[in-house]
Design a protein around this nucleic acid. Structure first.
Lengths: 145, 145
DNA sequence: TCGCTATTGCGATATTATTGCAATTACAAT
DNA sequence: ATTGTAATTGCAATAATATCGCAATAGCGA
């Protein structure tokens, strides 16, 4: 019985007919270590040091997306970034600073319940959601000395 | 006193030191007519018929983004799309079908107020937000005959 | 109407993403 | 452990996207 996050990844991949390879683990770890959404370009250079090929990164992300290991997030200026999703990371929302582009996680509970309620009786089957809040972080709206 | 949406666009651009040109109006109209998020590639081909150059589309989107005429939205599979924002369109959230990729707008009120509350006292200055809900639309989860 | 400056077209170029195929490797069954 | 098979990877080419420089054009304030 697996209890680690990487063990779970292995299980998930296997049950989907995918293989648990060193490259995939490296990519997974890069995302886990970053602990914030990572643009493709950054991810490519992060794992390039470990000898992972660019094409492999693209192919892996596509699969991780398909089997729900990662999700995409839109950063400032329309840049697409990737991050792990539950149970590989906690469910959370994002606050994205429009000045400096920094991303911080926000607890999700309060909004989630309102969101669930608002979807009752719509005939739509909700599977997941993303909430991104944009504004200025403390650093950027504090009168600079 | 301008009352139309296009009139407002004109005013907004002018006050930002930008010009109200035929190409920009065409791009704006294409987005307004689509009435749903449009990927860049699609937008380019839509206005190409009117003789708008590809480079112009990119440059215009960048400016529309800067002066808050449009915002980006992430569709299924990480495709970035553009849509008008208030007051050029109503404030709303999205429901994106993970099967067919269709996007539909959702009323925003209920979630918005919960969201505002949850941000009180965080020290963050909220300017806007995006809520995207993913799942299956009615068509896709109805037992197909 | 004029003049200044933003905008545009165009083609070239840079950047980013995808592909085909042979070699390699994970891993289930033996 | 060993083996067979199908998934994965590297590589380099190719395709697709996005950006640029600069001369010509056109908004729009005066």
């Amino acid at each position: 019985m697996e209890r680690t996050s990487e063990g779970h990844l292995k299980t998930l991949l296997r049950t989907q007919g995918l293989r648990f390879t060193p490259d995939r683990l490296r990519i997974f770890r890069a995302l886990a270590d970053a602990d914030k959404p990572v643009p493709v370009a950054a991810l490519i250079s992060m794992v390039a040091q470990d000898g992972v090929n660019q094409a492999t990164v693209y192919r892996t992300l596509e699969q991780f997306l398909a089997v729900q290991v990662v999700q995409t997030v839109l950063l400032k200026d329309g840049i697409v970034a990737y991050e792990l999703v539950p149970p590989f990371s906690s469910h959370h929302h994002h606050f994205i600073c429009l000045d400096c582009g920094a991303v911080q996680d926000l607890p999700a509970e309060r909004v989630d319940s309102a969101l669930d309620k608002s979807m009752e009786g719509t005939g739509l089957r909700v599977m997941t959601h993303k909430v991104d809040i944009y504004g200025q972080c403390e650093k950027c709206h504090t009168p600079s000395p």
